[in-house]
């Protein structure tokens, strides 16, 4: 019995190695939360620098930056980066980077659309959703070539 089991494990290892040999895309992402830090130089000139931050006060703006890269050996296609707007924050209109095709959801990510087409019915009237009502944001990037990298970003304000 013991001998048979070993054979099975070996066989599986062979299969895995064979798979790895095929060309495949491998997209990795990471996300950073940054805030604008204004520094005043000795000569009085102010400069704004984005810094990684862990703590935000209500009313402050969180700059979310999503970095992606394709470390695979093949292009990735139809890449969809989706991100829920965190609870307790409000999306800042116009802050989403115009990378690929940006769209928003007001129903928790079930459906996405351009802002002007995000409508809902209220008392028989069709209303366009306001940015406070956005629940999710999504970028669709048609192709991430092998070895390529990029980023998308958006901003929210802490309520």
């Amino acid at each position: 019995m013991l001998k048979q089991a070993k054979i099975v494990i070996l066989a599986m290892a062979v299969v895995l190695m064979a798979t790895a040999a095929f060309a495949a895309p491998k997209v990795e992402i990471k996300i950073r939360a940054e805030k604008a830090k204004i520094t005043v130089a000795k000569d009085g000139t102010k400069s704004t620098k984005m810094v990684l931050a862990k703590n935000f006060a209500p009313g402050e703006v969180i700059h979310y930056i999503v970095l992606y890269r394709n470390t695979g050996s093949e292009d990735a296609t139809n890449a969809v980066i989706s991100d829920p707007i965190p609870q307790g924050t409000v999306y800042i209109p116009g802050s989403a980077s115009e990378t690929g095709e940006v769209s928003f959801s007001i129903d928790g990510g079930k459906s996405f659309n351009r802002p002007a087409l995000l409508t809902y019915q209220t008392r028989g009237e069709k209303r366009v959703a306001s940015p406070e009502e956005y629940t999710n944001i999504r970028w669709v990037i048609n192709r991430i070539p092998a070895g390529a990298q990029g980023k998308v970003s958006f901003q929210v304000k802490v309520k």
Binding site: A23, P25, V27, I29, T77, A79
Partner: peptide, 24 residues
Amino acid sequence: LLNVVTVSYKDASNNNTFSANAST
């Protein structure tokens, strides 16, 4: 405030779907 971002993508053949996520 937790932000989990997901990327889903396909290979060149458009047949196989992959995904990855990250959070802050």
